[in-house]
Nucleic acid binder design. Structure first.
Length: 518
RNA sequence: UGCGGGGUGGAGCAGUUGGUAGCUCGUUGGGCUCAUAACCCAAAGGUCGAAGGUUCGAAUCCUUCCCCCGCUACCA
């Protein structure tokens, strides 16, 4: 038995001052698809998600509601946890940045940074007391805060800074060489041009007063609290117990899983992940993550999702209306993994009808009905006829392409290949007319071959859709009479034509994807 | 201002060594009847944002222009 290869992947941790929207669901689903696929491949997967609770915005939101910050944060984080459950996300842990081990780990990371990379300096800025935030000249409207219509104060404060400028050349080299790989290429180029334009040091702390005594204390300086990004990014290692005494053990999570194989993030936060984060790790002598997968955003009818515009889609409502599997399928196949995409109910319903009801669901239904009419068990198949060879070759090719697309985070294209298999089976039925073969006892052998090919093809389709629609895949397996859990089957067996044994009793069941109510 | 991405039949997309423009959905016509009024076949539909250039030949290379979007730092 060879040692399992480890695979560590993460989502970004959202700040929790608002309800989760469809964009976060998209990120959860994509990351989950990667995680489930890697488990199917046999990897020892650790899938982390979590919540960023140390942002000053949480303090403000709590004040606005008149409740303690800790209470607000716990409540709002609960909504994100609820969403991961409703989406049936298979995360192995959920890190909250209010956890003490996160504070300890963040402080450890700070302390591990080279002393010459962190320095204290006076910072001067235009500060709006109402917003509790600094503004740049360009953000002001007529010299006033756009929110409160009043001129900001010139505030001077001493903060810690990180010497990002020290890392410009190294970061450029690491990214250009793909040692730190950024997918897709466009994001890599974007960040490279940013780095080449010159990196400036950035502030990594706030005064405790300004931070409202909320956040992670700077080690050795009680007057300062970490700038939220510094601690937020460190969640990727603190969740693995970095900073705890036990982390030094060879059997610890940190030793086992770090560095991350992929951080899944939205395009809006690429800079923090492609520049700040690796620089911090370099300074602290911690290995770098291997890949950043940067996804695009979901627009609503061409308009950015925005609460103020009322253009938000609540993923939980979608799940209530269409079901988790459908939402996961739609997001995986039709929201572009790299570019921004539009979300529309029309497209969602159209793909449901075309791909799921008329496609996969109907194929399963007609196939199992025919098997039930012909004895109800999986017949002996495989006479090596020309058509069977063609179907087998097609599925082999589908698996190959699917693996490549999944490795490139091209989930939609991977699913396109899967549906090629579905379409091929429908065509196969039309060509061989099993209902006619059934009328002629002399052609029983042919009939059995046709039915076996259908059942075996469906079995393969189930294993291919499993990362995206785990419950549907499992249900197809059950109806085919398979008892061994799908998840326990090795990838090499999933790919092997002929895994399905004859004699299993099938169960047609109700339509997998019934017509949507008008 | 600068850098980058996009502009392909009704919709969503593919198309990087230049060589008669593809896919899925939708539409229309036909076929089949095992199936969730599902399935199969066929057809219609595009001067590939605009103009110019290179070339025997360009969606694909060059130039200019138009439209949309992203980034242009301490912003979850």
């Amino acid at each position: 038995m060879t040692e399992k290869r480890k695979y560590y992947l993460t989502t970004a941790i959202p700040y929790v001052n608002a309800r989760p929207h469809l964009g976060m669901a998209f990120e959860y689903v994509q990351t989950d698809v990667i995680a489930r696929h890697h488990r199917a491949l046999g990897d020892d997967v650790f899938f982390l998600t979590g919540a960023d609770e140390n942002s000053l915005k949480n303090v403000q939101a709590a004040e606005a509601e008149g409740i303690p910050t800790a209470e607000l944060v716990a409540r709002n984080t609960g909504r994100f946890i609820e969403l991961t459950r409703r989406l049936e996300i298979s995360n192995d842990d959920f890190i909250r940045t209010v956890e003490s081990k996160h504070h300890v780990g963040s402080q450890k990371l700070w302390s591990a940074c080279r002393p010459e990379d962190i320095y204290k300096q006076k910072y001067q800025g235009l500060y709006c007391v109402g917003c509790e935030a600094f503004y740049t000249e360009s953000e002001l409207v007529d010299g006033k805060c756009p929110e409160h219509q009043r001129p900001p104060d010139l505030v001077e404060e001493e903060n810690y800074f990180f010497r990002l400028s020290n890392y410009q050349e190294r970061l450029e080299r690491l990214i250009a060489s793909d040692e730190l790989r950024i997918v897709p290429e466009i994001r890599k180029n974007e960040i490279l041009s940013f780095i080449r334009s010159g990196l400036h040091d950035f502030s990594i702390s706030r005064s405790r007063e300004r931070a409202r005594d909320w956040g992670v204390a700077v080690p050795g300086d009680p007057s300062q609290v970490m700038y939220v990004w510094f601690d937020a990014l460190s969640n990727y290692i603190t969740a693995l117990d970095y900073g705890l005494d036990s982390a030094a053990d060879s059997g610890s999570r940190f030793a086992r899983y770090w560095p991350a194989d992929v951080h899944v993030i939205g395009k809006g936060i690429i800079r923090f992940h492609a520049v700040y984060w690796p620089a911090m790790l370099l300074s602290a002598g911690v290995p770098l993550p291997k890949t950043l997968f940067v996804h695009g955003y979901i627009n609503l009818a061409g308009v950015k999702m925005s609460k103020s515009l009322g253009t938000v889609v609540d993923p939980v409502e979608l799940i209530d209306k269409y079901g988790v599997e459908v939402v996961r399928y739609y997001l995986s196949r039709y929201i572009h993994p790299f570019q921004d995409s539009d979300f529309t109910y029309e497209q969602l319903e159209a793909t449901y009808t075309a791909d799921l009801a008329k496609g996969l669901g109907n194929l399963l239904s007609r196939s199992l009905t025919m098997i039930e009419k012909c004895g109800g068990t999986i017949p002996r198949g495989g006479d090596g006829a020309e058509d069977e060879v063609a179907i087998r070759a097609l599925f082999a090719e589908i698996f190959t392409a699917y693996e490549r697309f999944m490795a490139d985070f091209e989930f939609g294209r991977a699913l396109d290949k899967v549906w090629e298999g579905q379409a091929a089976l429908d065509r196969y039925i039309t060509i061989h007319k099993p209902w006619e073969l059934a009328k002629n006892p002399a052609r029983a052998g042919e009939l059995h071959t046709v039915l076996y090919i259908l059942a075996e093809g469906l079995r393969m389709l189930a294993s291919l859709i499993a990362p995206v629609m785990p419950a549907t895949a499992t249900e197809i397996w059950r109806r085919l009479g398979l008892e061994r859990p799908l998840g326990e089957v090795a990838w090499a067996d999933h790919k092997r034509w002929g895994l399905l044994a004859e004699g299993l009793t099938v169960d047609k069941g109700a339509p997998l994807f019934p017509w949507l109510a008008k």
